[in-house]
Amino acid sequence: NQASVVANQLIPIQTALTLVMMRSEVVTPVGIPAEDIPRLVSMQVNRAVPLGTTLMPDMVKGYA
């Protein structure tokens, strides 16, 4: 099973992502693949992302 990127904390809207905000976890449905974590650093979320939420491509500006 492929690991996805999951929020390690509440990430407020417009926040630039850092490594400490994300973790990898095998979840359903599958979100952004964990191997993309380095690419996500400094990208902004376009909505508030609660703790434990799987990051989906449409939540990160410039990802999809």
Score class of each variant (00 low, 15 high):
Asn1Gln: 15
Asn1Leu: 14
Asn1Gly: 14
Gln2Asn: 13
Gln2Arg: 14
Ala3Pro: 15
Ala3Met: 11
Ala3Glu: 10
Ala3Thr: 07
Ala3Tyr: 11
Ala3Val: 07
Ala3Ser: 08
Ser4Gln: 00
Ser4Asn: 01
Ser4Leu: 01
Ser4Ala: 03
Ser4Tyr: 03
Val5Pro: 02
Val5Ile: 14
Val5Met: 02
Val6Glu: 02
Val6Met: 04
Val6His: 01
Ala7Gly: 01
Ala7Trp: 03
Ala7Leu: 03
Asn8Lys: 10
Asn8Gln: 09
Asn8Cys: 07
Asn8Pro: 00
Gln9Phe: 08
Gln9Thr: 12
Gln9Glu: 14
Gln9Lys: 12
Gln9Ala: 09
Gln9Leu: 10
Leu10Met: 13
Leu10Ser: 13
Leu10Asp: 14
Ile11Val: 06
Ile11Leu: 07
Ile11Thr: 00
Ile11Gln: 00
Ile11Lys: 00
Pro12Tyr: 05
Pro12Asn: 09
Pro12Arg: 09
Pro12Phe: 05
Pro12Ile: 05
Pro12Lys: 07
Ile13Ser: 13
Ile13Asn: 14
Gln14Pro: 02
Gln14Thr: 10
Gln14Arg: 13
Gln14Val: 06
Thr15Gln: 08
Thr15Asp: 03
Ala16Asn: 09
Ala16Pro: 15
Ala16Arg: 11
Leu17Glu: 01
Leu17Thr: 00
Leu17Phe: 01
Leu17Ile: 10
Thr18Met: 09
Thr18Val: 06
Thr18Glu: 10
Thr18Ile: 06
Thr18Ala: 10
Thr18Pro: 01
Leu19Lys: 08
Leu19Thr: 09
Leu19Arg: 11
Val20Lys: 15
Val20Pro: 12
Met21Gln: 03
Met21Gly: 02
Met21Cys: 04
Met21Pro: 02
Met21Tyr: 05
Met22Trp: 03
Met22Ile: 09
Met22Tyr: 02
Arg23Val: 07
Arg23Asp: 05
Arg23Trp: 04
Arg23Pro: 02
Arg23His: 05
Ser24Phe: 07
Ser24Met: 11
Ser24Tyr: 08
Ser24Asp: 06
Glu25His: 08
Glu25Asn: 08
Glu25Tyr: 07
Glu25Pro: 01
Val26Leu: 11
Val26Ile: 14
Val26Met: 13
Val26His: 13
Val26Gly: 04
Val26Cys: 08
Val27Glu: 01
Val27Phe: 03
Val27Tyr: 02
Val27Gln: 03
Val27Thr: 12
Val27Trp: 03
Val27Ser: 05
Thr28Ile: 13
Thr28Gly: 06
Thr28Arg: 12
Pro29Cys: 05
Pro29His: 05
Val30Ile: 12
Val30Cys: 07
Gly31Ala: 03
Gly31Ile: 02
Gly31Lys: 02
Gly31His: 02
Gly31Gln: 01
Gly31Phe: 02
Gly31Arg: 00
Ile32Ser: 00
Ile32Lys: 01
Ile32Asn: 01
Ile32Val: 08
Pro33Gly: 05
Pro33Thr: 07
Pro33Trp: 10
Pro33Met: 08
Pro33His: 08
Pro33Glu: 04
Pro33Phe: 07
Pro33Asp: 05
Ala34Ile: 06
Ala34Phe: 06
Ala34Thr: 07
Ala34Leu: 04
Ala34Pro: 05
Ala34Asn: 05
Glu35Pro: 06
Glu35Val: 15
Glu35Lys: 15
Glu35Leu: 11
Glu35Asp: 12
Glu35Gln: 15
Glu35Arg: 11
Asp36Pro: 00
Ile37Gln: 04
Ile37Lys: 06
Pro38Glu: 12
Pro38His: 13
Arg39Cys: 06
Arg39Asn: 11
Arg39Phe: 11
Leu40His: 00
Leu40Ile: 11
Leu40Pro: 00
Leu40Ser: 00
Leu40Gln: 00
Val41Glu: 05
Val41Tyr: 04
Val41Gln: 05
Val41Ala: 05
Val41Lys: 03
Val41Leu: 13
Val41Thr: 05
Val41Pro: 02
Ser42Asn: 15
Ser42Met: 10
Ser42Tyr: 10
Met43Trp: 06
Met43Val: 04
Met43Arg: 09
Gln44Ser: 13
Gln44Asn: 10
Gln44Ile: 10
Gln44Leu: 12
Val45Pro: 02
Val45Ala: 04
Val45Phe: 00
Asn46Tyr: 09
Asn46Pro: 01
Asn46His: 08
Arg47Asp: 07
Arg47Lys: 12
Arg47Trp: 09
Ala48Leu: 10
Ala48Arg: 11
Ala48Gln: 14
Val49Leu: 10
Val49Thr: 05
Val49Lys: 01
Val49Ala: 04
Val49Gly: 02
Pro50Glu: 12
Leu51Met: 13
Leu51Val: 15
Leu51Lys: 14
Leu51Tyr: 11
Gly52Ile: 04
Gly52Leu: 04
Gly52Ala: 06
Gly52Met: 04
Thr53Ser: 10
Thr53Leu: 09
Thr53Ile: 07
Thr54Trp: 03
Thr54Arg: 01
Leu55Val: 09
Leu55Pro: 01
Leu55Ile: 15
Pro57Ala: 10
Pro57Leu: 04
Asp58Met: 09
Asp58Glu: 13
Asp58Asn: 10
Asp58Phe: 11
Asp58Ile: 08
Met59Val: 06
Met59Trp: 12
Val60Phe: 06
Val60Asp: 02
Val60Gln: 00
Val60Ser: 02
Val60Ala: 00
Lys61Pro: 14
Lys61Asn: 15
Lys61Gln: 13
Gly62Val: 04
Gly62Pro: 05
Gly62Lys: 06
Tyr63Gly: 03
Tyr63Leu: 06
Tyr63Ser: 04
Tyr63Trp: 14
Ala64Ile: 13
Ala64Gly: 12
Ala64Leu: 14
